[in-house]
């Protein structure tokens, strides 16, 4: 198992760069603002000036499940952007600094190098996401009342493939471009397209799109029945995992052919 030294090195970098602490914290900050702003909204509106005396604003208090469903949607914007920022330099940066040419003349295949990077960032993403949603769900429960934890974890797990897709496409771009910024830019544009355009491209493409997976995950978090949700989620899961596989192998192929 000669990929092990590479994986060890990648994990060590997560610690020396504090990514292992920073990413979960930023993810928590991202999601936990949702229950907080929802809770504060009535107070904020009350304090707003310029309202005539005696105006009564009726805002229906959202349910805990509803709050959590909107929290997960934060990952499709800012959360994805942060992931792109972290992953974009992972290969491109090492090529630019020249350290890749020191590593690739050693008996570590490019496949293992690539695999180690993907594995590490997958783990970082999954763990950070689980921690963030766990903490946010816990706090939402305190502020808004009980949640079904089975739905919380199922909905969260269902969303994870979307994040892995972001990581994979960025890694793929990073193995093609020799500048981290170009890799990040291309990945950003690509992800915006693939997350927003398919719903307008007919029933089939919208059914297998990452956007459909986001919707399915939000539906589960809102509390829809799991059996029913799994039926609607299945095509989109298949679609997203296919995309992950395609870009994973494409990135690998590009790195294999790459001149260092």
């Amino acid at each position: 198992m000669t990929a092990l030294p590479m994986i060890k090195k990648e994990f060590r970098e997560l610690f020396t760069s504090y990514k292992i602490l920073f990413i979960p914290l930023v993810f928590i900050a991202l999601t936990i603002t949702q229950p907080i702003t929802m809770k504060m909204l009535p107070t904020l509106l009350e304090n707003a000036t310029g309202l005539p005396e005696g105006t009564v604003i009726e805002i229906p208090t959202p349910t805990a499940a509803e709050v959590l469903a909107t929290a997960v949607s934060k990952f499709s914007t800012l959360g994805s952007f942060i992931l792109i920022m972290i992953v974009m330099g992972s290969i491109a940066g090492e090529r630019a600094s020249g350290v890749a040419s020191m590593v690739f003349v050693k008996p570590i295949s490019r496949a293992k190098y690539y695999l180690a990077k993907a594995f590490t960032y997958y783990i970082l993403t999954i763990v950070s996401m689980l921690i963030a949603m766990g903490v946010t769900a816990y706090y939402t429960e305190i502020l808004f009342g009980d949640l079904s934890w089975l739905h919380v974890w199922t909905g969260t797990l269902m969303y994870i493939p979307n994040l892995l897709l972001v990581v994979t496409t960025t890694l793929c771009a990073s193995s093609y471009f020799s500048s981290a910024v170009s890799a990040g830019g291309v990945s950003l544009v690509f992800n915006i397209v693939i997350f927003t355009v398919p719903p307008f491209l007919g029933t089939f493409l919208s059914m297998v799109s990452p956007d459909a997976l986001t919707n399915a995950s939000m539906a589960v978090l809102r509390g829809s029945a799991l059996t029913e949700a799994s039926v609607t989620a299945a095509p989109s899961l298949a679609g997203v995992f296919s995309l992950i596989a395609i870009f994973f192998f494409m990135g690998w192929y590009l790195l294999e052919k790459q001149e260092i």
Partner: peptide, 27 residues
Amino acid sequence: GYVPQIPSFYNYMTATEWMHWVGTLYG
């Protein structure tokens, strides 16, 4: 063995750590 014109390493590693890491790549 290969020594490029401008060698670079993982900057946070010490010389000893780099040598050990490279050694493990060779098994």
